[in-house]
Write a protein that binds this DNA or RNA. Sequence first.
DNA 1: ACAGGCGAAACTTTATACAATCTTCGCCCA
DNA 2: TGGGCGAAGATTGTATAAAGTTTCGCCTGT
Lengths: 235, 235
Amino acid sequence: MAAKPRPKSDAPDVSDRVSRIREGVTAAILEHRLLPGTKLGEDEIGEIYGASRTLVRSALQQLAHEGIVNIEKNRGAFVARPTPADAREVFEARRLIEPTIVDHACEAVSPMWIERLQRHLTEEREAELRGDARASVRLSGDFHRLIAEMSGHSIYLGFLKELIARSSLIILLYRRHDTPACGTDHHTEIVAAVRKRDKQAARAHMLSHLNEIEAELFLRDPAADELRLADVLGA
Amino acid sequence: MAAKPRPKSDAPDVSDRVSRIREGVTAAILEHRLLPGTKLGEDEIGEIYGASRTLVRSALQQLAHEGIVNIEKNRGAFVARPTPADAREVFEARRLIEPTIVDHACEAVSPMWIERLQRHLTEEREAELRGDARASVRLSGDFHRLIAEMSGHSIYLGFLKELIARSSLIILLYRRHDTPACGTDHHTEIVAAVRKRDKQAARAHMLSHLNEIEAELFLRDPAADELRLADVLGA
DNA sequence: ACAGGCGAAACTTTATACAATCTTCGCCCA
DNA sequence: TGGGCGAAGATTGTATAAAGTTTCGCCTGT
């Protein structure tokens, strides 16, 4: 069992104050309460969490490393605004990694994990019925993270955490319609395949799931927006 | 209003002082001048680089996130000591990612890149002839990073940087013989395939290259490591 | 002689103070 | 009236000091 003496890599360390800040800000970004481009002032965050700027800085630097926050020298930290090129890279990486992850998940399947997956699907359905968009967004990301935890590969898990966080921003910026961020049906299909330890089906479902998410995106050039805006204002 | 160079994700920012520290320590670890388990005192490093502990701390936290340094609460930072399980994960991830990376490199090939690759191979050969083990180790890692830069995928590049750094520690800990860390011949073959834009061959060469590296490893129980380290220090 | 505990030193963690830089707003001039 | 210059304000970058924790040596008691 995970004895506490050695936290190892990025153990959450929930009791740590800087981790609390990091997770709080991450949750806010993932639930789309903080929009891309929002400035994250050090004093501002520090006051919210009752911590000094030293700790806030540490948390922001971690978030910058995860790619969901940009730190501009002498200007401060901002919620990242992924470009279409970033979006394509993120989803290409997910298409490469996640089929392999779900593959490993098939091997790690156990009653305990089945239980956790089922409970998660229930939560997702409830949030969707409730119309709780914030919870839905968060939970749909959590599903993929759960599969990664199940795979038992800490490196894949770390990579995927980063990719999921960025995906959340990408979906917010470039989603075409008001479709749900992640179709629950797909998740159900994936769980079913994992339960049957059917790697082929699990990989296929995961891949088509990711493809469908990306297909919902309209990766327009942000520069075009600014130009168009400039035109309108200049005309 | 020219587009201002946005630092984006982890732009090296070589002029940045904390990056200088990070790269210095990274180089020392990658060249096996700092052994796994070595304590990295903040004062000690700060004195070397003429910086205060604030900056050192920032650098060490980044290195911890990259997985080559472990930070233990209230005890300090230590050069990471990957377990055999870590090693297997790292190489599995590399086998998954690097064939795709070299695939993209084939598409990005240009006279400029050919030039850089050739120059790198020359450097590697020279270091090996010189018998400069430190340079050899560093350069063999740089080769893989160069391919990743060539692919133009910043996310893959970031992932691979981390994997390469950890690989260096793994090779140091678990290498069976005093074989070169990365056979230069393999690198030459890979470059040849990339020049011809032969994706099939490039992927195949990269994969067998990685397999050969891992085959040179003896992933024994980590308890044995401590024994060997104790032997070295006690002798 | 050895085990156990007390205490000091060293180190990390956190907070605060200072310096450097950027932004903004107002004023002056063409 | 519009633009440019400049100073004040705000914010970040860096250093230093205070607080808390661990570790190691020493001393005492059995």
